[in-house]
Each structure stands twice: as structure tokens, then as C-alpha cells.
């Protein structure tokens, strides 16, 4: 157990270091004088902001110091939770801007990912049972999983939003409302949430259904399934075992797909101007707000690492083999 988690944590720690290093290094590869370049590119109109930025950058990069000191001080500021100051929303700290957006992204992603995983697994297992269903679910699954997230989002926004008029197509809530804990506001929030959720859910659903269908067919051909069939066990029992065992690689698949799912959420948010991290990234790019961009990047990396770790924990609970191997009990 310790070895298993030790290895995992080492990978995550290394990943974090690599991410931070990339974050530190990339600005130094910018052509020309990075400080002047960034201040110029930011095109800040307020003199105070420009001056603050120049001072901040110069201090941050500390280009006159040796490289290792620059690197160490970068870590120092990061570990203090200091992600810098947003240029787009000057002088709000980047961390505040991000924390305001994170709930929206989580509210979109967590249900979409979990529900699509559960529903996709059911659908895939069902498809493996019936030929007719297999011939419809499979092509549909491949089409969905090949669909760019933003395109499905655009199509849904157009069809169900603009044409049918059932759902709003922009924002996290109506502009006329003030965020509050009233039923009216929450309903409005939900109303705005449906379409982005649906497009994330649908694209992810296709991938899970295909994965489960292929895994379960593989499991149904495995030795334990043949043995049970040879002993006359009903198909119901065999399918139950196969489904249970096919879920395990699907859990690993969830970890592997996290990056793609995050990317999907980002572009979906952009389509719907949903006020999460995706829209933040778009604003950061449009406003050349590099601190905001870098802060969001660090946040996403940390989020993905935490999610990975949670999946590892779940996996240990679900797969007895990891635990059996860890206990060191061997006959």
C-alpha cells in the first residue's frame, strides 16, 4: 500500500514541479525584453497599472539575479499563494479572480463527468448485450466522442437556445439578477447551467459507452467467464462479474481522460460565456493578462492532480487485488 501510494505521490510531486518549472521558464523564452514586452503587449492604459506592473515584473523575474535565485524566488511566491495581480481586473489578485470562477467550472464538470461515466458504462454494458443496440449505440458513441466539445455546444446553443428558445445561451445567470440565495436566482442559475452541462455530458458519454462496451466484451471472453459458462452459470451472473471487472479499467480511464475533460469544459464555457475558468482563460488571452493565464494554469494542474489522487483512492477501495497485493498476504 505504501509503495503504491508512494509511487503515485512521487509522480504527482514531479508533475507539479514540472508544471511550475514550465510556468517559470516559458516567459523567459519570450522574444526580446520580457518585462517591456509584457507591459507593452498588455497595453494598459492606466499609468498606475503600467508602473505597478513594471515594478512587479522586474521584481518577480529578477532578471539581474542568477537563474537559480530567480527560480527559488518564483517558488517562494507561489508557495505563499501569491499568483500575482490580474491586469484585466487590475488590481484584483489573480487568486481572487480564479476562486470566483472555480465554483462554476466545478459545478459544470463534476456532475457532467460523473453522470456521463455512470450512464456511459450502463449504456456500453447494455450495448454489449444486444446486437441491435450495439449497432446503434456504437456508431453514435463514435460520432459523439469525435465531436469537438465546442461544436456540440454551439449546435445545442443554436438548436435549443436560439431556435427553440428553451434555454439561455450566455452567462451563468441573467444579467438582471443579483447573486443571492433565493429560489428565483438558483432556478435561473440552473437554467443557465443545463446547456453547457448537456454538451459536456453528451460528448463524454460516447467515449465511456464505447470503452465499456469493448471492455465488457473482453471480460466476457476471459477465462473466468468461460469457466462459469462451462459450469452452467446463467448469463446474468457472468455479465454481473464482467461488468464489475470492466469498471476497473474504466476508473483508470477516468484518470487518463481528465485532461481532455478539462479542455472540453474550458471550450464549452467559452461558447456559453459561462463564468468559469474557461471564460477566464479567454479573457486572459484577449487582454494579454499573463498572470491570470499562469495562475489558471497552476490551478488546473493542481485540480487535476487532486482528482487523480482521489481516483487512486477509489481504485484501491474497488479493486481487491491492489489491497491483497499491499497486505503482502500471499499463500
Amino acid at each position: 500500500m505504501r509503495r503504491y501510494f508512494g509511487r503515485k505521490l512521487l509522480v504527482y510531486a514531479l508533475t507539479f514541479v514540472v508544471a511550475v518549472t514550465v510556468n517559470w521558464m516559458i516567459p523567459r523564452f519570450m522574444p526580446g525584453d520580457p518585462v517591456a514586452g509584457m507591459v507593452a503587449r498588455a497595453g494598459v492604459s492606466q499609468p498606475a497599472a503600467a508602473e505597478a506592473m513594471r515594478a512587479y515584473y522586474t521584481n518577480l523575474f529578477g532578471l539581474d539575479r542568477p537563474l537559480w535565485q530567480q527560480y527559488a524566488s518564483f517558488w517562494g511566491t507561489l508557495l505563499r499563494g501569491d499568483f500575482g495581480i490580474s491586469i484585466w481586473l487590475f488590481p484584483t489578485p489573480v487568486s481572487t479572480v480564479i476562486l470566483r470562477a472555480v465554483p462554476y467550472t466545478l459545478a459544470l464538470m463534476v456532475p457532467a463527468v460523473l453522470l456521463s461515466w455512470v450512464a456511459g458504462n450502463r449504456l456500453g454494458a447494455f450495448a454489449a448485450r444486444r446486437r441491435l443496440l450495439d449497432n446503434t449505440v456504437l456508431p453514435l458513441g463514435y460520432v459523439l466522442t469525435a465531436t469537438p466539445y465546442m461544436w456540440l455546444a454551439v449546435i445545442l446553443a443554436w438548436g435549443l437556445g436560439v431556435v427553440a428558445g428553451w434555454f439561455p445561451v450566455a452567462g451563468g445567470y441573467s444579467f438582471s439578477l443579483q447573486p443571492s440565495l433565493t429560489a428565483g436566482f438558483l432556478l435561473d442559475l440552473l437554467h443557465h447551467w443545463v446547456l453547457p452541462f448537456l454538451s459536456l455530458f453528451l460528448v463524454a458519454l460516447g467515449g465511456w459507452a464505447i470503452g465499456m462496451r469493448n471492455m465488457i466484451i473482453y471480460e466476457l471472453e476471459s477465462d473466468y467467464a468461460s469457466y462459469l459458462a462451462a459450469l452452467g452459470a446463467p448469463a446474468r451472473l457472468i455479465r454481473r462479474y464482467a461488468f464489475r471487472n470492466a469498471l476497473l479499467p474504466q476508473i483508470t480511464g477516468l484518470a487518463l481522460q481528465l485532461g481532455v475533460l478539462v479542455a472540453g469544459a474550458l471550450v464549452t464555457e467559452i461558447v456559453f460565456s459561462y463564468p468559469g475558468l474557461g471564460s477566464l482563460i479567454l479573457k486572459a488571452i484577449q487582454n494579454q493578462d499573463f498572470f491570470l493565464l499562469q495562475g489558471t494554469f497552476m490551478f488546473i494542474v493542481i485540480g487535476v492532480l487532486v482528482a487523480n489522487f482521489v481516483i487512486d483512492l477509489v481504485y484501491v477501495v474497488v479493486d481487491p487485488r491492489t489491497r491483497a497485493g499491499m497486505a503482502g498476504a500471499r499463500g
Binding site: 476471459s222 477465462d223 473466468y224 468461460s226 469457466y227 462459469l228 462479474y241 471487472n245 476497473l248 481487491p320
Partner: peptide
């Protein structure tokens, strides 16, 4: 295939 005939989980 007795070695793998039992459901591993």
C-alpha cells in the same frame, strides 16, 4: 486455464 478460472475480484 485453471490459474485464471476464478473471478479475480
Amino acid at each position: 486455464y485453471s490459474m485464471s478460472a476464478l473471478n479475480p475480484t
